[in-house]
Nucleic acid binder design. Structure first.
Length: 923
RNA sequence: GCGAGGGUAGCGAAGUGGUCAAACGCGCGAGACUCAAAAUCUCGUCUCUUAGUGAGUUCACAGGUUCGAAUCCUGUCUCUCGCACCA
């Protein structure tokens, strides 16, 4: 076998592709377009690792097959080059961020080119280029005009390592998304926000139209977090405070209110008498780390104020609590301790009354009067019988599913109720000393609770739900709710809202968890926000004609906001009054940049506008987007939002509603040790090293064959050897193969494989496609000759995975042009012959029979079989190829038709012959 | 706590009702080639059995549905990921 010089071949074809610009595309109305896109990378100074190669190869294969299928394929690459790491590197190594970034990009490009990716490099973009980011500013102004941008003071997430605020989406588990070890602090700051919430409904509704992995869709759904509820107005100090709740059916159970410690109007409620305690409490909360907050018990203090329940006119105390989220709903909750676990815990701690207003369906409280006086059949659970006499309670039942008795102490005193459904299984007794569960399922008939030695005494005055162990949070039947008693929760919600609406004290509302997008960053390496502050005119947007606001080169780091250190930058004249004014010194979140880059690819050199409408309308939407799941609720939500806004601003046709109708989530590539590749762990596999040793085609093929590309996979230095063997063999065998006529068997196999591989690639089951390709190659190897056309087909099938050697072999076998631009093969169904498949199986079976016999002879008789004779039915003779069999079995094989008079058959094995099953004689 | 997805032979990984003792790759074993090794080629690789056969036990664990289960249902254990006091 020759040792092929893969590196030379790779360079050769990469150069040819580039010189001939074969992957560059233009709008062509005659051709169907297809837009394949991978999430563009942040160009880190560390360069690419194998994980990137894995990701890009997935997209490249897709782009290649679509191109060969005749689509006009847009497959671009660019760089999300603004951002913190460059700035930090600049501070650390004293390199200007622009230089750091440009160097990193250069490095990325050369690495990516050596991966054989078929990008249209002519469309490359960098978000840190003035030609790109000036359009960020332009969009910001457009959004501003439309009222989609606003400035407000709010509690914001602050990461001290980033030295900047973060968007809600960038806080993970109370920590910074970039700095997993850094807790986010809450600061009160005035910042720029984008009204993503204005599109919450559409963003949510359109999720179901997307062909995305379910888990990403679910994540977005949860993130937007729509909940239906109502706003109920509670009167506080003569003022109406709207309070959001999803459980208006529990309004009669409200025994207190809790306001968030961060609520802007909190101070209005704290009365003189409670000021001291409140301040101590608030101080404590503010000094608590965000992370510890979650673990804390519910805590709070009384404000001294009261709210009036609009339906009962009861006065309930207002507490400050550490568990109420300030910016969700109304920042204050109506607390129903009997039916909300948090409220329950709080009430228990501060001995606030608990009032039960919902009981599970099929449940009735047995009132003491009823219980004490007579044998009692539960009204609802018809099969439960409770008898109470002399203060002793026994429970009898044969068909009740679950009987809950809530009791206190030695089962003495306390309220209890029975809940039943279907067959009897268990009876549960809870006591404050221990929880005991009795399995009722073993007993067929009636058992007495007292058999277990239980005595239950009930006293009237102890009917007190404060003894409940936890809140009942399910739906059920209303009690203690005046006119709404006996309604089911869902009915009660409607009725109660109606009653409140009638009094103008409440209404139905919808709440979202999604918050507006905070885009201000107190950092340098980003897009300057085009705003000017004038003492006279206030906030004044930069005029469109004055764009771009260029990011200054000379700033000082480490003294707060870097842009503020550039006097030339800050000082400006007010566009309105022409007086002295100052510029905004914050920059934009880089997710702003990545929210529309896919549009810019369609027209990346446009100086006059962000993109040409026609071009966007030709190429958009992205037909296949590829990227990791880490952007499920960040980039993917922002980009969807942006697209919808630009659509509404008339930048392109109304039909473009979603940027990425189809999304593929690739898995993570782990290192040899099974852990995520990272520099600190030292398990990073570098493409150039692998490439040098095995060739990039081999690496691509291997990456795609380890596992399904949507799964996390593990790099293995051993595994790639297998792929190398295959690549070498192909490279060795193909040029030597005799071209002529393909056998029926080969034709059938080839056409079947074309069909399979096409389907597998289209479904991203690349691993299966590679297996099919290998199986096909095995057949080709076995055959004596192959037709020119079939050989071409094989190379075409190989080419998306191993483009360089495919090109090389294409050329070596005398084909013209680039295989990358050749037509993707179409299967000829007529040539697929199921009978041949059967013959194949018969042959495999025969081989294994022969081998088995050889093994047995060796074991039993200690001799090696030398010659093998097969006796086959005359019509099957052609299916048994002596040469091929001999090669497989490594022995001389002679095939006779059973009716051959001259056959050699000393033991008359030919009598054993059956269709598809030859007789075998070994000697 | 809530939500999503997993657990398949020594390892990686296909397989979602019969064609499954389970593709493919790695590893390992045997043979061929060679003076020898590497490379390459062929075969084998759950257990027992066997002139090409037959039997048994498997797909986290325990039950169940079915004529039939790796595949469907229930429960348990376990791993990964996402959200996390959202009223």
């Amino acid at each position: 076998m020759i040792n092929y010089d893969f590196n030379k071949i790779e360079k050769k074809w990469q150069k040819k592709w580039q010189d001939k610009k074969i992957f560059e595309v233009n709008e062509d109305p005659k051709k169907k377009k297809y837009y394949v896109l991978e999430m563009f990378p942040y160009p880190s100074g560390n360069g690419l690792h194998m994980g990137h190669a894995f990701n890009y190869t997935i997209g490249d294969i897709y782009a290649r097959i679509m191109r060969m299928k005749g689509y006009n394929v847009l497959y671009p690459m660019g760089y999300d080059s603004f951002g913190l790491p460059a700035e930090n590197a600049a501070i650390k190594a004293n390199i200007p961020p622009r230089k750091y970034t440009d160097d990193a990009i250069k490095n990325f490009i050369s690495q990516q080119k050596s991966l054989g990716l078929s990008y249209d490099w002519n469309r490359m973009l960098k978000t840190s280029d003035l030609e790109y980011y000036k359009w960020n500013q332009y969009f910001f102004l457009k959004f501003y005009e439309k009222g989609l941008v606003y400035r407000k003071s709010a509690s914001v997430n602050w990461c001290k390592k980033c030295n900047s605020v973060l968007a809600n989406e960038q806080v993970h588990n109370g920590r910074c998304w970039r700095h997993g070890d850094t807790e986010v602090e809450i600061k009160q700051l005035e910042q720029w926000f984008i009204k993503t919430t204005q599109y919450a409904d559409e963003l949510l509704a359109d999720i179901k139209k997307l062909e995305w992995p379910d888990r990403i869709k679910i994540m977005q759904d949860n993130w937007i977090g729509k909940s239906y509820g109502s706003e109920i107005k509670f009167e506080i100090n003569g003022e109406k405070w709207p309070i959001f709740t999803t459980r208006p059916d529990t309004i009669f159970g409200v025994t207190f209110m809790v306001i968030s410690a961060q609520h802007p109007k909190l101070n209005e409620l704290i009365t003189k008498d409670y000021k001291k305690e409140a301040e101590t409490f608030l101080k404590k909360i503010r000094s608590t780390k965000q992370e510890d907050m979650d673990k804390l018990d519910k805590e709070g203090v009384f404000t001294g104020s009261y709210a009036i329940n609009p339906l009962t006119n009861e006065k309930v105390p207002i507490w400050i609590g550490n568990f109420v989220v300030a910016d969700y709903g109304s920042g204050m909750v109506m607390a129903v301790p009997a039916h909300d676990q948090r409220d329950f815990e709080f009430a228990k701690k501060y001995r606030i009354p608990v009032k039960t207003v919902i009981i599970p369906e099929d449940t009735r409280i047995i009132t003491i009067e009823e219980s004490l006086n007579k044998d009692f059949y539960s009204k609802v659970s018809k099969f439960a019988k409770i008898s109470i006499s002399d203060g002793l309670a026994n429970i009898y039942s044969d068909k009740v599913d679950e009987v809950f008795a809530l009791a206190k102490g030695n089962f003495i005193g306390s309220p209890w109720y029975i809940h039943s459904e279907g067959k009897i299984k268990k009876i549960l007794f809870h006591s404050s000393k221990e929880d005991r569960i009795f399995d009722w399922s073993s007993g067929k008939g009636i058992k007495e609770a007292k058999d277990y030695g239980l005595k239950i005494k009930i006293k009237k005055e102890q009917l007190d739900f404060n003894e409940l162990k936890q809140a009942y949070t399910g739906n059920g039947i209303l009690i203690n709710s005046r006119g709404f008693n006996d309604l089911r929760s869902d009915e009660a919600k409607e009725h109660i809202i109606k009653a409140l609406e009638f009094k103008k004290l409440g209404k139905k509302t919808i709440q979202y968890k999604l918050r507006d997008w905070l885009i201000s960053r107190q950092r340098y390496w980003g897009t300057p926000i085009p705003i000017i502050y004038c003492d006279k005119c206030g906030i004044v947007p930069v005029l469109e004609k004055d764009l771009p606001v260029k990011l200054p080169d000379k700033v000082k780091f480490g003294e707060g906001n870097p842009l503020a250190t550039s006097k030339d930058f800050v000082s400006v004249k007010c566009p309105k009054c022409k007086e002295k004014a100052r510029r905004e010194t914050d920059t934009m979140d880089t997710f702003f940049d990545s929210s529309w880059y896919f549009l810019r690819y369609t027209d990346n050199k446009n100086h006059k506008s962000p993109f040409d409408r026609k071009k966007v309308e030709y190429w958009m939407p992205v037909d296949q987007y590829i990227g990791g799941a880490e952007h499920a609720v960040m980039h993917l939500i922002y980009a969807r939002f942006f697209t919808k806004v630009l659509r509404d601003l008339g930048f392109f046709d109304k039909k473009i509603n979603e940027p990425f109708p189809k999304l593929f989530n690739q898995g993570m590539l782990h290192g040899n040790d099974g852990f995520v590749m990272s520099k600190s762990r030292g398990n990073v596999v570098l493409p150039e090293e692998v490439s040098e040793k095995y060739g990039i085609d081999t690496a691509r093929l291997f990456l795609m064959s380890i596992a399904s590309p949507d799964k996390d996979t593990q790099w293995s230095d051993n595994g790639i050897e297998g792929s190398l063997r295959f690549v070498k063999k192909v490279f060795d065998v193909i040029p030597k193969i005799k071209t002529g006529k393909s056998s029926k068997r080969l034709e059938s196999k080839i056409n079947q494989t074309v069909k399979n591989i096409t389907e597998e690639i289209m479904g991203f089951r690349y691993n299966i496609a590679v297996i099919k390709l290998r199986q096909l190659f095995e057949i080709i190897e076995q055959e004596n000759e192959i037709s020119k056309n079939d050989l071409d087909i094989f190379l075409k099938l190989l080419s998306p995975f191993a483009p360089h050697i495919s090109e090389e072999l294409w050329e070596k076998t005398g084909r013209k042009g680039f295989i990358s631009l050749a037509d993707w093969p179409v299967a000829d169904d007529k040539k697929i012959d199921a009978n041949l498949e059967k013959q194949e199986e018969a042959m495999e079976k025969t081989i294994s029979d022969v081998l088995n016999i050889l093994k047995i002879i060796k074991e039993k008789q200690g001799k090696d079989g030398e010659k093998i004779y097969l006796y086959v039915l005359p019509n099957e003779k052609d299916s048994y190829n002596e040469e091929m069999l001999s090669k497989r079995i490594n022995k001389k094989i002679k095939v006779y038709a059973v009716n051959d008079k001259n056959k050699y058959d000393p033991e008359n094995k030919s009598s054993k012959v059956k269709p598809g099953r030859p007789g075998i004689f070994v000697e």
